[in-house]
């Protein structure tokens, strides 16, 4: 699978009241990949939300990834699944579903190498910078560690955690294929402008 996106937008319905509208605005602005990550919804609620985002992403020729739940990824015809570090094992999914795109969250070089070996198509490496969502849980990895991971892997590495358009440029300089963001876009006062800033920093979307 060749990854046709550099900016990976992750959902968080708790960040903003009407997330779907912002997602649509981001897609209208050119975002090419969305990951649905909502922790505390039931299977049926995830199905409804997933179908909605599937249809939005399809209309914009954008890719759609489902976090953690393979059954929901299949049920919503997602392009792929994104596995948390302690999620379903990549190798088992790969073996059973050769065509499903698989992203994997990693927080260390060891886990990044393991993900690549298991057949992941890309990893998100985090947190690069300190971020409110991971405050006190994980120490920031920093750009040097990002450079080490990116140079050790053949598959694309996305920098995640506290990413802004300015920092995205630094991440790319340190070997990142792209960046994954939540609040930088969801909480932006001017989504089209933020997206175009990322586009410039990343050399594409």
């Amino acid at each position: 699978m060749s990854l046709s996106f550099k900016l990976y937008l992750i959902t968080d319905r708790k960040a903003i009241p009407d997330q779907t509208l912002v997602l649509e605005e981001a897609l209208n602005s050119g975002v090419k990949a969305v990951q649905l990550r909502e922790k505390d919804l039931s299977g049926r609620e995830l199905l409804h939300l997933g179908k909605k985002i599937r249809s939005l992403t399809r209309n914009h020729q954008a890719q759609f990834f489902f976090n953690e739940r393979l059954d929901l990824a299949l049920s919503t015809e997602a392009d792929g699944i994104h596995c948390p570090e302690e999620g379903l094992p990549v190798a088992q999914i790969r073996e059973r579903f050769p065509k499903v795109a698989i992203g994997k969250s990693v927080h260390s070089l060891r886990k990044a190498l393991e993900a690549e070996k298991d057949g992941a198509d890309f990893v998100t490496f985090s947190p690069i910078f300190s971020t409110p969502s991971k405050e006190g849980i994980l120490e920031p990895q920093g750009l040097e560690q990002l450079a080490l991971v990116a140079s050790s892997l053949k598959i694309p590495v996305f920098a995640l955690g506290g990413i802004t358009p300015e920092r995205a440029k630094e991440c790319v300089k340190h070997g990142a294929h792209g960046v994954a963001v939540i609040s930088a876009i969801l909480k932006s006062n001017d989504v089209p402008r933020t997206v175009s800033q990322f586009e410039e920093a990343l050399g594409g979307l």
Binding site: G43, R44, L70, D71, R96
Partner: peptide, 28 residues
């Protein structure tokens, strides 16, 4: 969890009213 049932090789899944509807589980 239909995906856990699938990957573990279980004989099946038990769904509640809040879980995936039967037709989706059946497809998987």
């Amino acid at each position: 969890r239909v995906d856990i049932a699938l990957l573990s090789g279980a004989d099946g899944v038990h769904l509640g009213q809040e879980d995936l509807p039967i037709e989706y589980a059946r497809k998987i």
